[in-house]
Design a protein around this nucleic acid. Structure first.
Lengths: 206, 206, 206, 206
DNA sequence: TATGAATGAGAATTCATTCAT
DNA sequence: CATGAATGAATTCTCATTCAT
């Protein structure tokens, strides 16, 4: 489809290399532990070189955030192809988010970074990646409404947003307090999240 | 119970003074706008003095977070005294969180700071303040279970944690994306949050 | 006189292209707004290529300074052809400098750059362009001396240098403080410069 | 008059130390050769310490510029007390500038820094120091007008500004081209400047 | 010749924390 | 207890110049 010159490809490789390094660093230092110095050290590149490929640190974060959302989006697309009811697809959106978080904690952080931090300004691309997810989920919700599996008093667009918000919130809870909950209440992450899914199901299923 | 010496009391006054200053600063500069320099300026104390009362900037944030939770806890206590069904009290927990967020954005940020940021380590006091809320809410949930207004398949402890997680998540969503949602989907904050309350109600009411 | 090979000519074209680009950039960004990166972008040449034609950024500035002086020199040549007394021609040198400054602020900056900044080292070519102006002006001064219109106690060579120095100084004053002078003292640029011309006339006219 | 606490004095000493260091550096590296790093090295202070005393590098430059102007101003004040005609006092302003430049080339650069560079914004203090000089000189010019020694067609305010501009210009010329002029034209700095003084005298003396 | 990726030494500024007084 | 001067590592970003291809 796209015929890229060798130059172009090499450039993209470098970008990818740098993004990889940024991921590695964030994976061990946390989102806020990223600095250009560390990226330079990790990639064995000069500091200035980083700026040949990205115009600012924020751009790097942005792109990783988009990447993470895109990956999540792809997971969501797989749901669409499953042979389950639309209402179960909605539930699957939450479930998939959970699995995504378990598999890629860093990516999950990146997805929620811009959901949680209102200092940063979303770029067009970021907005787009967010929009894609919204559209996909609201599509499912619409169909669930039409096939009568969604409670009639639930607005498809509202539940789309709420599902996202609630899921992010519960995952944060698990992430930050998970071990405490396990220890003090003897509730495992898995159990708690399953309860969440039941809760959601109860609230939206006709 | 505890007989505090004059010194002890003075020490606590100073601590209070410093915390107040920190609040004032954050109220106008945002959570990230807090610095020890600014606290020193605001309190007219020397920078070193701050460190006599608090071992780090993080401790100050911790304590304010505790304070914020305590305030929220007090709001929750008022719910207990209301003449509504236990199930409605559970809903009221979410609703109260929303009102609290609208009234005290700073406190709300402080409450969620440690829910959202896993770099920071919770102190015993912080844990306690969190525990208080949990106990209060789970108490309501237990009673709702006993009086039969809570769905029998909903675990009171589970729903306690989930309610908290979901609420925080939806409030974050509103906070960060609220204006976008209004603009693109023409859904007001209030509407969305009301939908959330309905959603919760649907999912827990027998 | 000089028979240049095609290569030589092409090389000169490239140099010219680069110098043009530098001018364009400085015209919109100011003298300090020039960078090799921008020149490369403007010329569509690679950064390294610039260094094949000029050994440093400083050389480019030097040459533009020469060009600017050459342009000024040409303006001065027109004075020679005018049908006015030699003493008035000397005054016209200052006047012309003012008009040149108003018309080409960038060129004027370039002319004075090396008059004002002693970090930079003048090249032979730069010296020559400066020399040309000096010779032209001192020629006028000599003739003014011979035809008796120049005060006899004024050394032609001295006044040549001084006229240049004073003019540059007054133009700098106008450039940097012009608006302040207008505002605080209500003296317009034009008025001030006319006073300067009168001052000069007074001091050199017999 | 002013009773300063020991603290205050020490603080001022530190500021003075830093300013001294800045001067030393600029004296050897030129005005543009100043950096916070170098100041830190020269003073044996940490970089951050510099910022305890000055809010920015620009403030340091500003203050040195003010200092230089103030020194020059003091020299000008001595002129007022001399027993010479007002017209000769005006000439003495130029002469004094020359001597000041010869004695303190760096200070001279600092005085002209803001006369020559329109990037920088003058602070109130800077403006004041400039104003002081202007007032002093225009006072002399006014008196020269009143006692009839100033040409009646010369506006005192105009000549005040022009004298300053012309002097700066001629000193720049001497500074940048002085050795060249000596070499090529065999005119010494001193001679040239004396010619300048004659020129000024011719133009303003009745 | 031409390229342009890579360099890396700066640059200014911030700020939590320490420690001698 | 109280001070506040001092620290210095960290941070982001720039840009003239070089050099392998």
């Amino acid at each position: 489809m796209s015929t890229k010159s060798r130059k172009q490809l090499e450039k993209e490789n470098r970008r990818e290399l740098i993004l990889q390094a940024a991921e590695t660093i964030m994976a061990s230092n946390g989102l806020h532990g990223l600095s250009i110095d560390l990226i330079a050290a990790e990639t064995q590149l000069a500091k200035g070189t980083i700026y040949l490929y990205f115009k600012s640190k924020e751009e790097i974060l942005s792109l990783l955030s988009v990447k993470a959302r895109t990956l999540l989006f792809k997971e969501f697309q797989k749901i669409e192809r499953r042979n389950i009811s639309n209402i179960e697809k909605l539930i699957a959106v939450s479930k998939t988010s959970y699995l995504f978080y378990k598999k890629n904690p860093l990516y999950y952080d990146l997805v929620s970074l811009y959901e949680v931090n209102n200092q940063l300004t979303e770029t067009g691309e970021m907005y787009q990646s967010s929009e894609n997810i919204t559209k996909l989920v609201s599509g499912i919700a619409d169909r669930a409404r039409k096939d009568g599996t969604l409670r009639p008093d639930v607005d498809p667009l509202h539940i789309t947003m709420l599902l996202w918000g609630m899921t992010i919130g519960v995952l944060q809870l698990i992430k930050v307090k998970g071990s405490l909950i396990k220890q003090k209440m003897n509730i495992s992450e898995k159990e708690l999240f399953d309860s969440f899914l039941d809760t959601v199901r109860n609230s939206i299923k006709k």
